[in-house]
Amino acid sequence: MSESTFLFQYVLHLADDVLILGHRNSEWTGHGPILEQDIAISNIALDLIGQARNFYQYAAQLSNEEGISATEDSLAYLRDGWDFRNCLLAEQTNGDWAKTILRQFFFSAHQVDLYAWLAKGNDTTLAAIGAKAYKEAIYHLRWSSEWVIRLGDGTEESHARMVRALDELWKFTGELHTPVPYELWATGAGIGPDLSLLRLKWEERIKNIFDEAGLTYPSTQWMQTGGKEGRHTEQLGYVLAEMQFLQRAYPGCEW
């Protein structure tokens, strides 16, 4: 694969992660557990979709330079599931507040280090996007960490729900730090981080918060992967069917 293809795929992966996660979070808008938190989760959704737009715009630019016309919207709305490169974790259903919180926490704990790294990496566009996104991720991590602690150490019921969420989501966390070819290329080119180093930081973050929350760090080793290379769980298809409906039903329109 050529350098430009690797870079394109890497940027798409970054974009897809936050679009799908942001889309999932936005399903809460209007249905949150209390007005104040409805607003909070919507804010996070907005941050993530904003990040996605920045990454897609960059990906579209890369594509156009190769003579293949693309826009942020064609990339988001006109690719099928096998071309989406988001981690499986992002596409998992919201479930209850515990599952949504835990999914966000796992992601944010990864994103803070990822974005901090991008911000000082060799690609100037990614560095600029990373620097902005880093500030947002820091806040998301703070917010989701506090909720993990509250729910883990709140009532018996909230603790049980966190344990269940952990059971559902844990197997999707390994993929965050299992590199695929375009990530290995990015690491080599000094554009992206070495995921094995990020994994150590991530584990430490999770363990610290779990300690406070009274949650046990799972010992399960087996992890599901494939999302970053376009092999998804069933969930993504439903997300895309809904998200892409208008663009597919009325092709070529301005909205």
């Binding site: 249905h31 509250r150 729910l151 709140g154």
Partner: peptide, 16 residues
């Protein structure tokens, strides 16, 4: 539904 589904969340935060 949103209110009832959120009851355990509000309770947990208060308990904590």
């Amino acid at each position: 539904k949103a209110h009832e589904d959120g009851a355990w969340v509000r309770e947990a935060a208060m308990a904590y």
